[in-house]
Simulated scan of single mutants.
Amino acid sequence: AERHWGFAEGVEITLEANPSSVEAARFADLAAAGVNRVSLGLQALDDETLGFLGRAHDVDEGLAALDTAQRAFARVSFDLIYARPGQTPDMWEGELRRALSFGAEHLSLYQLTIEPGTRFATLAAQGKLPPVDPDDGAALFELTRAIATDAGLPAYEVSNHARPGAESRHNLSYWRYDDYLGVGPGAHGRRLARATQRHRKPENFLSAVRRNGHGMVEENDLAPAERAAEALLMGLRLDEGVDLARIARRTGVDRLVDDAAAKRLEALGFVERSGDALRVTPAGMLLLDSILAELVAV
């Protein structure tokens, strides 16, 4: 990549890794090759939960990988999943405070969601995985934000927390709806008003490269309204919100939000609008999906 395009000063090169001893053994070599940031999928800090989540590592192996990562890379992030079955606020607070004690500059903190076609969906359908009560989920969300903020890692996106200046730059590019190039297996891209997708399986990707000179499986033009909607849906996840004028300039779409809905939501304290700047408040983040459905006019 550096040979073809060159790197900007202070470029961020992120590796997403499983916290296993096998992957951790490669961290020093990856750092020497130029990787300067790693994101680890720890997901939980107790073995019973890791087993429930279907993870191959245990807590000791995960924390050993975290220690190796912190010695190898300049910047380290890891993720945790909360609002798990049987998890009380006190249990989550203890786990989160322990996680913060490791000194990572960035944490991704996600509520457990049940996606169609997954093992969790099957368990839920069988009554073996009761959904989290919405009020309990909201309380855990607010607790998460308060504890992380007090520790110096405020939320800059719905589920992502970082020390100021340590935000994930590549994720910010997605959320700010900048152009980005998707290159490897399974990669998606948004560039020059086009959406691209590469073959997901590495073997299919490599076969396509040999056959066609590229691994593209799909490339489509994005209509202005589609780009505008994507920019709003992504950007309003950020604490900073969106610049409506910027989106209008980039897409050619002028009517981006329902003004009546915006005024109603602002009166309720769920959004803030100042000129072309629009953001969802912390109180609104609890209801983000519903707010977006009302607010977005494209």
Results as ranks from 00 to 15, higher is better:
residue 144 T to H: 09
residue 142 E to Y: 00
residue 125 A to T: 11
residue 123 L to W: 09
residue 149 T to Y: 08
residue 147 I to C: 01
residue 186 G to W: 07
residue 147 I to M: 06
residue 125 A to E: 14
residue 123 L to D: 13
residue 165 G to M: 02
residue 116 P to K: 01
residue 152 G to D: 06
residue 116 P to Q: 06
residue 145 R to K: 06
residue 132 V to S: 12
residue 131 P to W: 00
residue 128 K to W: 09
residue 105 E to M: 01
residue 190 R to D: 12
residue 118 T to W: 12
residue 144 T to L: 06
residue 179 D to I: 11
residue 179 D to E: 15
residue 171 N to F: 11
residue 130 P to C: 08
residue 193 A to F: 05
residue 129 L to V: 07
residue 120 F to K: 03
residue 121 A to W: 05
residue 177 Y to V: 01
residue 188 H to D: 05
residue 138 A to K: 02
residue 102 F to C: 11
residue 183 V to T: 14
residue 132 V to M: 06
residue 126 Q to H: 00
residue 124 A to C: 05
residue 160 N to E: 09
residue 149 T to M: 08
residue 193 A to E: 15
residue 107 L to M: 15
residue 129 L to F: 05
residue 123 L to P: 14
residue 175 W to F: 09
residue 161 H to S: 06
residue 119 R to I: 02
residue 155 A to N: 10
residue 150 D to W: 04
residue 147 I to D: 00
residue 145 R to C: 05
residue 131 P to C: 02
residue 133 D to N: 05
residue 166 A to F: 15
residue 168 S to G: 15
residue 146 A to P: 01
residue 173 S to K: 11
residue 115 E to Y: 13
residue 188 H to W: 10
residue 189 G to V: 04
residue 107 L to C: 06
residue 149 T to I: 00
residue 107 L to H: 11
residue 134 P to E: 10
residue 168 S to L: 08
residue 177 Y to G: 01
residue 165 G to K: 14
residue 117 G to W: 09
residue 135 D to Q: 09
residue 168 S to R: 02
residue 193 A to V: 03
residue 180 Y to V: 09
residue 167 E to M: 05
residue 156 Y to R: 04
residue 122 T to H: 00
residue 122 T to W: 01
residue 137 G to N: 08
residue 105 E to I: 02
residue 134 P to I: 08
residue 175 W to L: 11
residue 131 P to H: 09
residue 135 D to E: 10
residue 140 L to K: 12
residue 103 G to R: 07
residue 105 E to P: 07
residue 109 L to M: 07
residue 181 L to W: 13
residue 114 I to Q: 03
residue 155 A to M: 10
residue 166 A to N: 08
residue 102 F to D: 10
residue 162 A to E: 07
residue 136 D to I: 12
residue 143 L to Q: 13
residue 106 H to M: 01
residue 173 S to I: 12
residue 158 V to H: 12
residue 158 V to S: 06
residue 141 F to W: 05
residue 107 L to S: 13
residue 174 Y to V: 00
residue 164 P to N: 03
residue 166 A to P: 06
residue 106 H to D: 15
residue 143 L to V: 03
residue 114 I to M: 08
residue 194 R to D: 02
residue 165 G to A: 05
residue 112 L to I: 04
residue 176 R to F: 04
residue 185 P to W: 01
residue 194 R to K: 14
residue 154 P to G: 13
residue 106 H to L: 12
residue 154 P to Y: 12
residue 188 H to Q: 13
residue 165 G to H: 15
residue 156 Y to D: 02
residue 156 Y to C: 03
